[in-house]
Design a protein around this nucleic acid. Sequence first.
DNA 1: ACAAAAGTGGGTAAGTGTGGGTAAAAGTGG
DNA 2: CCACTTTTACCCACACTTACCCACTTTTGT
Lengths: 139, 139
Amino acid sequence: MLFGRYEYALDGKSRTNFPPKLRSEMGETFYITKWLDGCIIGYAEKEWNRISEILKEKSMVKTREIQRMLYANATDVTPDKQGRILLPQYLKNHAGITKDVIIIGAGNHVEIWDKASYEEKEKNMDFADIEQAMEELEF
Amino acid sequence: MLFGRYEYALDGKSRTNFPPKLRSEMGETFYITKWLDGCIIGYAEKEWNRISEILKEKSMVKTREIQRMLYANATDVTPDKQGRILLPQYLKNHAGITKDVIIIGAGNHVEIWDKASYEEKEKNMDFADIEQAMEELEF
DNA sequence: ACAAAAGTGGGTAAGTGTGGGTAAAAGTGG
DNA sequence: CCACTTTTACCCACACTTACCCACTTTTGT
């Protein structure tokens, strides 16, 4: 189970650290791609394959847009010996990342955020909405 | 699985690079042809044959238009030693390619776009639609 | 307080992207 | 069918980016 919140800064070569506590569960190489809410999502290989299987079974026409978003923006990353990863430019643009980064574990995936965007999101988080969603799920 | 997004520029001889990460999966020679949404689609030989088989089984009347679009505009391409391919003029016209090119991997195929067209498409991509589609797929 | 782990900086070699020369192939007109 | 022009294929070159490795400082855990 992936969890926790970690803060890093891009270094001069535009690399960002990846949380040691999440590395073993993410495996040596994992996949990152665009996600909703202006963040980057990361899946371990196994989880990525599971999603691919789901999409493969569905109609091409229906999933075309989803596939394009997920696959077209995906890249595989392998942390270096110090555990850093390099984010491609288009993903940094998508997430608005310039320097400070927040990486969170969120169950079956990780999310990579620009620090300011995340804090903004956090500030606007509506507990009432969450409560309602939980109620609907009979949580 | 083909994935990733890659940006190149046509050089003076109108060649474009083809992403190293996609080359092995596409094979030495692959097929490109016209596709919907104003882009060029590329299939590895195996996938191309699979699609041909599917079309062969279907009624000629129904698939006539599809076949015409796919086959008439198809060409086989072989990256040179540096991994570049040459796009025929009619496909460049179809996709509106003049200089900057974006190549994406999208599961079972690749797509070749004019950079500006792609970014326009990307900008108009409605995340709400995607979210809904994903929900329907119980994603 | 000490040792281990984590975070950051940076050098070097390999890989990637682009330009261009020359030879082969294809297209065109007589 | 041949000569000429244009296009394409193949090779060499080089700048730039990325991957890999080593080093040092800071933080964490005991």
